[in-house]
Amino acid sequence: MRNLLPQILYKKVKKNKNVIILLGDIGVYGFNKVFGKSKNLYNMSTLEQSMMGFASGLAINKKEVYVYSIAPFVVERCFEQIKIDLCYQKMNVNIISCGGSLEYSELGCTHHCPEDIAVLKKLPNIEIFIPGNNYELETLVKQNKSSLPSYTRLSKNSHNLQFKIKKGKSNCLKKVKSSKTLLIAFGPSLRFIEKNLSDLKVNILYYSTIKPFDSEALNNFKHVKKIILIHEMYIGSLVSDISLNFSKSVKIFDVGLPVKFFDSYGSEQDQYKETDLTPKKILKKIKKVIELK
């Protein structure tokens, strides 16, 4: 997704000269290669808070702005700027991050961000997307014509399934009337179960838009008793979006990252192995939940 982003935004610029892209000193080489010398692309280096305020000022004067940097720096470092300058003021500024969750595991906890979406979704007026692959990234950026601020979390991981998505809507990947279990996967995390989709005799929903949350889709599954969430955020990040739509008798099994600092370095895969976030372990968990009465 990271390699594709400059091309997607270049297309935007070609169509609309009021599109401005601000980089937080990331992806500079890739963007320069695609854009060449351009009045629409600026590397704002490492002043994230002011970059966000600056972006909102550009948007006040009718620019459509994209701000791109590493997740912790473009979310938490400038959280109040996102809250006030973008959300409160309702500015057309689109934040795009890379390296969410533990994608920069080797670089230590300063570069980790499994809480970006949980933090941002509490803010009014922001839309949040978590594309699962290149096609979804391109579709979501294309379909995002809202003048409200947005956050899109890019990932180096992708799922390999092909189905059409629509901004703001989830996808029902499988409906098994007899099953009392609903499996919900978010963005690239669908890759963990993609090979087992046909074998799993459960209902399966997929979300590439987190906010506004497609609650309507859950109406078709009011009969379920068990819900399994699969994602790469801190556990609890998405539970309220689901639980508010169901009665108390539904049990939610949240498969994500435990709330802790992953301070042992190593690769993302090393961390996922340690937290049982692997296709094999997840499948085992799913089967166990299905068997539960």
């Binding site: 305020g53 000022g57 006040i60 620019k63 700027q81 300058d85």
Partner: peptide, 14 residues
Amino acid sequence: GHGLPIISGMAFAD
């Protein structure tokens, strides 16, 4: 501390 970044963006857009 919010005004100056914002007005800088407005001035730059112009």
